[in-house]
């Protein structure tokens, strides 16, 4: 059977359309538009619009931190010698299995002005972001920001293992822990060393012989981390600021301190 031969039909013009047909056409258009717009609203708009990168304000001004205590870590990158004692302490303290890690050290070759390459070691761990993409994507609230300290925590019993948080983390700081049947990550030793030390230190920070990992409280001017960050002239940076996650791990060269 032949289909409609549109090219052979005579143009009847819009004036021949009945009122009913016009209404039907308008209704169709309105429905399609309405559904598309409605869908856009329900899709929670784009992730970029939800991003936390606000004109380069990586660190909030002193006195305006949203948590108290607001835990942070300053990493004096230039002092790291890659002894990995921090990693060992983390594994021991937090029962990290051999196939995963909560913190690691990356080796970098950074080109300098003379065209040579400088060797540097960059410890990385969960950045305990102020705007964590992992928390936003979790469908069951299994990963969340602790309301008091701002530490990004896990509630393993709620984790469905969709691994969206792993995909969303710009720092690759999450892994699936089979023993818990849930995602595991650095939590600043929230339930282990931090608790034992009365909120003063973490396992990796305590184990570091070179004073690389300085754990502290951004709301407490007496902590070393606070002093380092708020000392005029000190240059520090965060990893992947373009992700808009507002990290709480700050990097600086040892020579600045």
């Amino acid at each position: 059977m032949k289909g409609i031969q549109l090219d052979k039909l005579k143009n009847e013009g819009p004036e021949t359309l009945s009122l009913k047909e016009r209404r039907q056409f308008l209704k169709f258009g309105l429905v399609v538009t309405g559904v598309f717009l409605g869908g856009s609203i329900f899709s929670l708009t784009s992730a970029q619009a939800q991003g936390a990168y606000r004109g380069g304000k990586v660190v909030p001004p002193a006195g305006q931190f949203p948590y108290k205590p607001h835990y942070t870590m300053v990493i004096r990158q230039g002092q790291c010698i890659d002894c990995e004692l921090c990693m060992e302490a983390c594994v021991r303290t937090n029962s990290v299995p051999a196939y995963g890690y909560r913190t690691t050290i990356l080796e970098r070759r950074i080109p300098n002005a003379e065209g040579e390459q400088e060797r540097a070691f960059m410890p990385i761990l969960c950045n305990q972001c102020n705007q964590p993409s992992c928390v936003r994507v979790c469908p069951t609230g299994a990963t969340y920001k602790d309301a008091t300290t701002g530490i990004v925590l896990m509630s393993p019993k709620k984790c469905i293992g969709c691994k969206t948080c792993m995909a969303a983390c710009p720092y690759n700081q999450r892994y699936y822990k089979e023993e818990d049947r849930a995602i595991d990550k650095c939590n600043f030793c929230f339930d282990t060393k931090l608790k034992e030390s009365g909120g003063k230190t973490t396992a990796c920070s305590a184990a570091c012989p070179a004073g690389v990992r300085i754990f502290g409280d951004l709301t407490d001017p007496e902590t070393e981390a606070y002093k380092l960050i708020h000392t005029r002239g000190n240059v520090f940076w965060v990893l992947k600021p373009e992700s808009g996650t507002l990290p709480n791990i700050f990097y600086m060269d040892a020579t600045d301190a």
Binding site: C138, T140, G141, A142, K158, I160, T164, R181
Partner: peptide, 26 residues
């Protein structure tokens, strides 16, 4: 595909995360 699908029904219902597109989509 997900590791613990038996947790989905309960926690999607009793611990929903409305900012998660995954939750909305499920």
């Amino acid at each position: 595909e997900i590791e613990t699908p038996w947790r989905v029904g309960y926690y999607a219902l009793f611990s929903p995360q409305p900012f998660s597109n995954i939750w909305w989509k499920a």
